[in-house]
């Protein structure tokens, strides 16, 4: 069992090194360490499921080994930036101040065509609109547009910003959500009273949500006609 455990850790570290060396493009939305854990756990688990000659412990020990190693590495990453840099990599500029970074593109195995494709996924069809494009550690691309290409915000147009509330789910699938009521700063009693004023009872509702403007949008059960209504914000 100790052999099995140590082999798992050795293999984990080896896979981590190889995945880091292959560059970020292969990682796609997962940190290298997360990807290894996901892939290896799936493989180890399926071995024990498909082969009845393998004891369950042959899967349990490596999975626990991976879990503990992952926890240790996560803790080490929190403590040291250098370890984090090695395990997760560091974000890299593919476009900086509007200039394509040729060396970084080569180092990360990114062809210009790939970069343009990723920009298109971000609804940017002309690299000239981009000030900075950063390849994140999980393989995704973050893009900062040139100031003249960014749509104006309310603040830019001096439009007054309403004091919006956080939407809170009050009833879902016919059940009262205590967390949502707490978020909306409503007691059960106050909520029931507000419904009663509008001729409703909590048990009649399939769904209720407090919206950003303070109104409550409700929908009755399908057996009661799935009626949707909006209860205006009180005083």
């Amino acid at each position: 069992m100790l052999n099995l455990f140590l082999r798992t850790i050795l293999l984990y570290l080896f896979l981590l090194l190889v995945l880091r060396l292959t560059g970020k493009r292969q990682v796609a939305d997962l940190e290298p360490s997360d990807l290894i854990v996901t892939l290896v756990i799936a493989d180890v688990g399926s071995n024990a499921i498909s082969d009845p000659n393998i004891p369950l412990l042959y899967s349990v020990v490596p999975i626990l080994g991976l879990y503990l190693t992952q926890q240790l590495i996560a803790k080490a990453c929190l403590k040291s930036d250098r370890i984090r840099g090695f395990v997760c990599g560091t974000p890299q500029y593919l476009i900086k101040n509007g200039v394509l970074q040729e060396k970084t593109l080569r180092d990360t195995n990114y062809a210009v065509r790939d970069l343009i494709e990723h920009l298109r996924e971000k609804d940017v069809f002309d690299p000239a609109e981009v000030t900075d494009a950063i390849l994140e550690t999980n393989g995704s691309l973050s893009v900062r547009l040139r100031p003249d290409g960014v749509p104006p915000t309310r603040a830019d147009c001096s439009v007054p910003i309403p004091n919006e509330l956080r939407p809170a789910l009050l009833i879902r699938d016919g059940k009262l959500c205590e967390d949502g009521l707490k978020d909306a700063d409503l007691s059960r009693q106050a909520f029931s009273n507000r419904l009663k004023k509008n001729g409703l009872m909590p048990k009649d509702l399939f769904y209720a949500q407090r919206g950003a403007d303070g109104s409550i949008r409700v929908q009755t059960f399908a057996r009661s006609g799935a009626k949707v209504s909006s209860l205006k914000k009180e005083g």
């Binding site: 069992m1 100790l2 455990f5 412990l57 020990v61 626990l64 080994g65 879990y67 503990l68």
Partner: peptide, 9 residues
Amino acid sequence: FCALLLALF
């Protein structure tokens, strides 16, 4: 998990 692993070793 650590205790289990130590026992299994």
